[in-house]
């Protein structure tokens, strides 16, 4: 365990330094991720000008988006297509450790670049943040990171079977945007759809932490939200392990 953690740390450090060359591109990536919450906020503040908590919700959602989005279709699917995953497979540890290290480096860069953007928005909009709600949302944010990582990983691993992994990951991101609470806050879904959206993995990955941080949920809804996050974490963990094991058996690469 300690060895694995040390390896993840080494990979994260190495990737962080490598990506320093691409810091301009990373800024555009962060700005790109800011668009969907801003768009959702623009739509709903125009549709419901008197709605309370909307700015708090969407600023929280921006934080969740920046903390949970992963570019695994590039960092993992591309090595599968190029055949360079073989380099990682022959190392005396799981290739997933390298992927995890890359994801931690990515998070660090997103925090460094995204923090001033979020700070500026909080300052300009003067949103009423309740510390207790923010603290209550932190475990949900951590769970959302893990669930979305596993979800994106499972989609990116379809690269073992199809050339369309980038499209599949993009489609997953579109569904997360539409059903996860960005295009429409879950609370605004009409009743039959609302319970479906609340129990969906997309809410667990995006909307739930933002709804808790903005104080939009009562105690029972928070408990139920955490329960669904635990369920989806278990489901995606199993799915990812199964997909990874069967995918690696299919993988072939030429050269050395």
């Amino acid at each position: 365990m300690t060895r694995s953690l040390r390896l993840i740390g080494i990979y994260a450090h190495r990737t962080f330094l490598e990506w320093m060359t691409w810091r301009g591109f990373l800024v555009t990536l962060v700005l790109g991720q800011c668009v969907t919450p801003v768009l959702g906020f623009a739509v709903w503040s125009a549709a419901l000008p008197d709605a309370s908590n909307l700015s708090t919700y969407y600023i929280s959602l921006l934080v969740v988006q920046l903390m949970t989005v992963f570019q695994l279709d590039h960092t993992l699917a591309n090595p599968i297509y190029r055949g360079t995953l073989s380099h990682q497979l022959v190392r005396p540890h799981s290739p997933i450790l390298g992927t995890l290290g890359t994801c931690f480096a990515e998070r660090l860069w997103f925090v460094i670049i995204g923090a001033p953007v979020v700070g500026l928005l909080v300052f300009l909009s003067n949103v009423p943040l309740v510390v207790a709600n923010v603290l209550l949302a932190l475990p949900a944010l951590a769970l959302a990171m893990v669930v979305r990582f596993l979800f994106t990983l499972a989609l990116a691993l379809t690269a073992f079977w199809t050339q369309q992994a980038h499209g599949i990951v993009a489609f997953g991101a579109t569904l997360t945007f539409l059903i996860g609470g960005s295009a429409v806050p879950i609370l605004y879904f009409p009743d039959p759809l609302r319970s479906v959206a609340e129990s969906s993995p997309f809410s667990a990955m995006l909307g739930l932490p933002a709804a808790i941080a903005s104080g939009s949920l009562n105690r029972d809804q928070v408990v139920m939200g955490y329960a669904w996050q635990a369920v989806w974490l278990a489901v995606f963990l199993i799915v990812t392990v199964v997909v990874w094991r069967s995918g690696v058996r299919r993988f072939t690469a030429v050269g050395g």
């Binding site: 301009g24 591109f25 555009t28 990536l29 700005l31 790109g32 991720q33 800011c34 668009v35 969907t36 768009l39 623009a42 739509v43």
Partner: peptide, 18 residues
């Protein structure tokens, strides 16, 4: 040459849906 704004354009494009 180091500046690739593909992602930003894709994001800005989304504003056209409303």
């Amino acid at each position: 040459p180091g500046l690739a704004l593909d992602v930003v354009y894709d994001g800005a494009w989304q504003f056209g849906r409303y």
